[in-house]
Design a protein around this nucleic acid. Sequence first.
DNA 1: ACTCTAAATAGGATTTATGTATGCCCTACA
DNA 2: TGTAGGGCATACATAAATCCTATTTAGAGT
Lengths: 301, 301
Amino acid sequence: MPYTLRQVRYFVAAADEGGITAAAHALHVSQPSVSTAIAELEAQFGVQLLLRHHAQGTSLTPAGRRVLAEARELLERAKAFEAEARGLGQGLAGTLEFGCFVTFAPIYLPRLLAELRTRHPEIAVRVREGSLDDVREALEAGETELALLYDMGLSEAIETEEVLSLPTYALLPTGHRLAKAARVALAELSAEPMILLDLPASREFFLSIFFNLGLEPRIGMRSSSYEMVRGLVAHGHGYTLLNTRPATDTTYDGGRVVARPLIETVPPTRITLARLKRARPTRMAQAFAETTRAHFRARAG
Amino acid sequence: MPYTLRQVRYFVAAADEGGITAAAHALHVSQPSVSTAIAELEAQFGVQLLLRHHAQGTSLTPAGRRVLAEARELLERAKAFEAEARGLGQGLAGTLEFGCFVTFAPIYLPRLLAELRTRHPEIAVRVREGSLDDVREALEAGETELALLYDMGLSEAIETEEVLSLPTYALLPTGHRLAKAARVALAELSAEPMILLDLPASREFFLSIFFNLGLEPRIGMRSSSYEMVRGLVAHGHGYTLLNTRPATDTTYDGGRVVARPLIETVPPTRITLARLKRARPTRMAQAFAETTRAHFRARAG
DNA sequence: ACTCTAAATAGGATTTATGTATGCCCTACA
DNA sequence: TGTAGGGCATACATAAATCCTATTTAGAGT
């Protein structure tokens, strides 16, 4: 039969208050409860902790003094434990583990995290960027509590909430013949070389757009780097299709690109905030989700 | 309703074993016990700690990972607490708080503590020296567990055990007319100036010896320092009565003294090892007491 | 000697922990 | 697609702590 935190608490209270009755008062329990709890502790360990002075309360034995020091540290830890757990459940302070699809992290996160800092300065965020699969797996393994990713190929266990709907657009070099058109037709572009963003989910998605329209693209070049694709387009290697859209049309090497909406009807890609259905969200996660919602609503409107 | 160490233990086990059933096995309890314990923890703090994967055990949520770290430290402390308490009760390692009447500390303790170190090297001793009252009060207050002092004026609450019986002797300068006598009579000395060891209990004791014999001493000088008294005697300021007896007859300033037994029958002073009756002794104290007994037995025999 | 204070003990009611049995839901495999 | 199996949750009964009230015990103070 092991000892309990309750017994330790009662012992410390008796030591602090100088007596069992006083401790019972402080603890709002009856005097016999404290008395027996301490007696149990002593019996457990075979040490006398308190000297009972008749009509004058108690004092510590030398052994009791030593044990008291340990007991205090134990209770200290117990309080820290409780604070940590309770804080995670009910408080807002702490670190939120957050996953984000690497492609739109630099486009949306800096501003979103700034807004979070304004609204909830006590929430720290640790961002884990990666491929769609990486982010999804981390979410399902419980390594991250929330994730921002495409609503593609997610299991039933994941609950999603759309925060931004991204129309697919065509990206052209500034000198392209269609660069000044209000909208461009994929049917017209498909004969030209396409620069394909060659990432696991993106690849299939962009190609499926053509197939669904009965078209076949001419793949000119591929790259798994988003910025590389933009650079290639800027320098006339071809056009590309993209969803996410940086705020600048100037590429890293100084080239310029033009984004144009499509004439064809293409279902937009949805960026969603995802979480595990079976996991009860912490208050931090709730606050983060609310901030994200408001942030993207404001951005869209 | 506060959480318990049991719940924390079960949670850590589930985290370590990767599942509730596995944890139940490791803990030798039923699976529902672990399940409900963890559910209670989660309810207490309002945090989900574990993700339940159907047919695949459990894994930690981000919050669970944080809490787990605290939980481990808490259990660590709990183990330390138990070790401390149990060690004091049943083990021999630790520090014994020991009180000693200051006058005979330098005469008996160095050798006694050396013997203790031989027999029980794992026992550390902290000695508190002081007047009889100091030592007695410290014992009664529970500041020391054992004490070596005179069996004088001790309350009923203190249990004593005689370890050494000290006959009162007369201390004379080497040139004294009775210095060569086998024994000296107080009746003869009482006319000469006496150097009184002027300490709370000693004072009354030595004076009572005269009064009990119907004599009256002539107090020449007083000192509360034992060695000062010896020095004064060595240099012919008078004689004194003492109980404790250093191994040397040379005083600090190079004078020499002679100790002579008394002719009159004077009840010997008893040095006793004292402890509180109502305090259950630790194993350290038992070992110390046994060592003390053997030590003084050997010294006397 | 009497009173006061504080701890220990007794006994009974209540709450809490534990075990068995069972249901449920998913994963894995045919 | 269906089925078997693993593993967590729930229901319920029982055993064990825990608590409280009332009472006893034993010094301390007067």
